[in-house]
Design a protein around this nucleic acid. Sequence first.
DNA 1: CTAATAGAAGACAAACAAGTCTTTTAATAA
DNA 2: TTATTAAAAGACTTGTTTGTCTTCTATTAG
Lengths: 150, 150
Amino acid sequence: MFNKETEYALRSLVYIQVQNNKARRPGIAEVATEIEAPLAYTGKILQRLVKQQFILSAKGKGGGFFFDPSSPEVTLLVVVSAIEGDRTFSGCGFGLKACDENNQCPLHHKYAPIRAAIYKLVSEETVQSLARKIESNQNNPLTNVFGANW
Amino acid sequence: MFNKETEYALRSLVYIQVQNNKARRPGIAEVATEIEAPLAYTGKILQRLVKQQFILSAKGKGGGFFFDPSSPEVTLLVVVSAIEGDRTFSGCGFGLKACDENNQCPLHHKYAPIRAAIYKLVSEETVQSLARKIESNQNNPLTNVFGANW
DNA sequence: CTAATAGAAGACAAACAAGTCTTTTAATAA
DNA sequence: TTATTAAAAGACTTGTTTGTCTTCTATTAG
């Protein structure tokens, strides 16, 4: 569904949010280990997320990454769009250049509701809502997909 | 949704089927032009589709590509899986390694029905069904997305 | 002030996807 | 049988994504 950078970014953000909720500010090494992504690449991605102002960072001892608690929740749509543009949500299933209501490809009628559902999902879910889902599953080993004590 | 090779392959197959229905066997150059894909790359892709036995080919004058009329209709699922595996239909929206019924990621419940809908779509639609849709739209300029007289 | 910690920056490298080019093989028509 | 047409084969090139490495800068503790 998403490319690697987007995947790592989403997982990083959710992990950071979960930790922030425990009054912790994880660093690059911790994030990379926990989300099972390459260390250096994770560093690059976190750097970009800071530049794009999704998170803040602190250097030096006790430093790490964290959300500005006064900022509104950040939807998956905003993160994905910032990293890979909106092609994920606007592309046509059959790959035609222009496939819209006036100019439909043979898959249009059946693909349109799927695309709409994806758009709805990423517009409604936020990094924070995913973090809350994880937190509420902490005590259920079968559903703790992260295999760690986030 | 799909990668370029898959896109070109699907468009090529549908184009070839539409032409076969008119008792024509288009060649590489014609297919490439009509589906708006690079000539040489289209040749490579058609070559692979022949090897995978989705279509047959004839060399020499009057040659070109065509379906074996005695073969059953070919679903989009089969074509896509042959080219890019089934990752498109099995991957998790949140990018976790293992996200299934027993081990769910925070997006699972909301993404599962979308994935199922995609799977259903590509399992039900065939190259031939798409060709028929196009043929039935031939006289409607507003919906003739291909901009050509397929 | 200085040593240690930790993120920032940017050049570099590997892997993969997308696409090209040249030569060979097969079929047909004259 | 020769010229022409058209696909097959495979080496090669380009561009993008993914990822690494080294150096620099900022913060904190002692």
